[in-house]
């Protein structure tokens, strides 16, 4: 094929996909604010996305905090700056690693689950069946997931922040023989309100991205088992990439000129 035509076609297809996604997103968000609300469904999603993700997020951030302490120790010990380790751990966890690690893990867990569930409902005509039973699938299936994902991710990340800092504490106190009380007071000393808050805002955006990608790919999947598999992969990959992109963009916005 003509390489110029190929470039053109790829660009047009990309723009079409972006436009399609934008229309879907606007429609989905509108349905989050227009009644009726399916409270049972929203509650179920809070439990699925929030409560059942706790072990995954906890374990991930625990080991992230631990390895962070260990690695910064090897570096800082070379110029006698061990006392900076608690600050490095808490700033890295709250500003970056907490939201990003939790976001990526939840993208794998929840983005995939949403895409697979909605995709299967699409190919078995359950989504069409909802419409014939006077229930809008955007309100019944998509809005509860978006609402729950966006609101619960900051809570998950807050838990992850605490567990991550605790991981650093464990390594420093039991392995590197820091004084426990000193470690805690040093952690607080340089921590600012905005360090934690920026991480939680990121988490809300990541929660929206994850559930939106899961819903979009699942809702529009076609072609049986293979289509559902493809939708699941696309949901996780696109959510993960968007999380990393938006992490950079949001960091730039929050700390511009600082």
């Amino acid at each position: 094929m003509n390489p110029l035509a190929l470039i053109g076609r790829t660009c047009i297809e990309f723009l079409l996909a972006v436009g399609h996604l934008a229309r879907f997103a606007i429609r989905a968000v509108r349905h989050c604010f227009v009644p009726p609300f399916y409270l049972r469904q929203i509650a179920r999603q809070f439990i699925d996305i929030g409560y059942y993700s706790l072990p995954v997020v906890g374990l991930t951030t625990l080991f992230t905090g631990m390895v962070l302490a260990l690695q910064s120790h090897t570096g800082f010990a070379r110029f006698d700056a061990e006392s900076a380790i608690p600050t490095v751990v808490i700033l890295s966890i709250t500003r970056e690693l907490g939201p990003v690690m939790a976001g990526l893990m939840v993208a794998g867990r929840i983005g995939a689950a949403i895409a697979a569930e909605l995709g299967t409902m699409r190919v078995t005509e359950q989504i069409d069946a909802l419409t014939t039973l006077s229930t809008n699938p955007f309100k019944y299936l998509i809005a509860p997931r978006l609402i729950a994902g966006t609101l619960i991710l900051p809570v998950l990340v807050l838990v992850g922040d605490i567990v991550g800092v605790f991981g650093g504490f464990l390594v420093c106190v039991y392995d590197l023989k820091f004084n426990a009380a000193n470690y805690i007071s040093q952690s607080w000393q340089y921590l600012e309100h905005r360090d934690v808050a920026s991480g939680l805002w990121k988490a809300a955006v990541f929660g929206f991205i994850i559930t939106m990608m899961g819903c979009y790919h699942g809702f529009n999947s076609k072609g049986g088992a293979q289509g559902v598999g493809k939708a699941t992969t696309n949901a996780v990959v696109s959510a993960s990439i968007l999380i990393l992109v938006f992490n950079y963009v949001l960091t730039g916005l929050f700390f511009a000129g600082k």
């Binding site: 409902m121 005509e125 359950q126 069409d128 419409t131």
Partner: peptide
């Protein structure tokens, strides 16, 4: 459109029950 769709019931080929 909702009012229009409320007039209908449908039996789907694969039953399409909510599992």
């Amino acid at each position: 459109l909702d009012a229009h769709q409320a007039k209908f019931g449908m039996l789907f080929q694969g039953s399409a029950l909510f599992d």
